[in-house]
Simulated assay, not measured.
Amino acid sequence: MGRADHLNDRQINLFEKELYKELKYWCIWKVGYHLMLRISDTLKITKEEAEKYIRTGKYSSYDQKTGKENIKPLSPEALTTFKTALELAGDSLYLFPSPVNKNKPISRVAVFQKYKYTSEWLGFKETVSTHTARKTSATKIYNMTKNVVLVSRLLKHSNIGVTMTYLGISSHEEEEALLML
């Protein structure tokens, strides 16, 4: 499950349309995409937490990997996604329950397999994994703003260098930018 590529707008639309056929996976993708979350942080969301996010209009948690506080406003689309996921979750503890045990979240392996199968079925050459939603939203924000500091802060990266590597910004691109002056 190592490497992940980002998707372009056309691919995002195709991928989301296909995932929509299995609404739970579509919701997992949308939450990760709109909040730029790692899959571990997406899957650990409980129904109680989701209800709080809807009530307050903000996502608020501590990242599982880094322990850093992560507070983000919910866009209208993220809000709708949380509401949809709550309806699907039924009487389980987690927002995205395992089909085997409703009091555990779905496994990242199950999500990975669904994303991989869907991307292959769509004929994508890109490597689509559970990290693709986060990387796609980060790349999209960077392409719109060209603000690597903003993207770094949204991703909760420890430094700009990590974000530059994450986005694929190379020293060659830096040199080309200077030569354009």
Rank of each mutant, 00 (worst) to 15 (best):
M1K: 05
G2M: 04
H6Q: 09
L7P: 01
L7I: 00
N8V: 03
N8S: 07
D9I: 14
Q11N: 12
I12T: 08
E16R: 10
K17D: 10
K17H: 08
E18H: 10
Y20C: 11
Y20T: 09
K21W: 14
E22Y: 11
E22F: 08
Y25F: 11
Y25R: 02
W26F: 12
C27N: 05
W29M: 14
G32W: 00
Y33A: 01
L35Q: 02
L35I: 11
L37C: 05
R38I: 09
I39S: 04
I39C: 12
I39F: 05
S40F: 09
D41H: 09
T42P: 09
L43V: 13
K44V: 13
T46G: 10
E48K: 14
E49K: 13
E51M: 08
Y53S: 09
Y53F: 14
R55N: 10
T56E: 06
K58L: 13
Y59A: 14
Y62T: 15
Y62G: 10
K65D: 09
G67H: 00
G67N: 03
G67T: 11
I71N: 06
K72E: 02
P73F: 06
L74S: 00
P76T: 06
E77C: 15
E77M: 14
A78G: 09
K83G: 06
K83N: 00
T84H: 03
A85T: 05
A85H: 02
L86W: 02
L86C: 15
L86H: 08
G90R: 05
D91P: 13
P97A: 09
V100Y: 10
V100R: 07
N101F: 03
K102V: 14
K104W: 01
K104Y: 03
P105F: 02
R108G: 10
R108L: 07
V109F: 06
V111P: 05
T118F: 00
E120Q: 15
E120I: 08
E120Y: 07
F124R: 02
S129D: 01
T130P: 11
T132R: 00
K135F: 03
S137L: 15
S137G: 11
T139N: 02
T139I: 03
T139G: 01
K140V: 11
I141A: 07
Y142L: 01
N143F: 00
N147G: 10
V148I: 12
V149T: 06
L154E: 01
L154A: 06
L155V: 06
K156T: 14
N159Q: 05
N159G: 03
N159R: 06
N159A: 02
I160M: 05
I160Y: 07
T165Q: 12
T165K: 08
T165L: 09
T165A: 13
G168Q: 12
I169E: 04
S170M: 07
S170I: 01
E173D: 14
E173N: 10
E173W: 09
A177D: 15
A177W: 14
M180L: 13
M180S: 14
L181K: 15
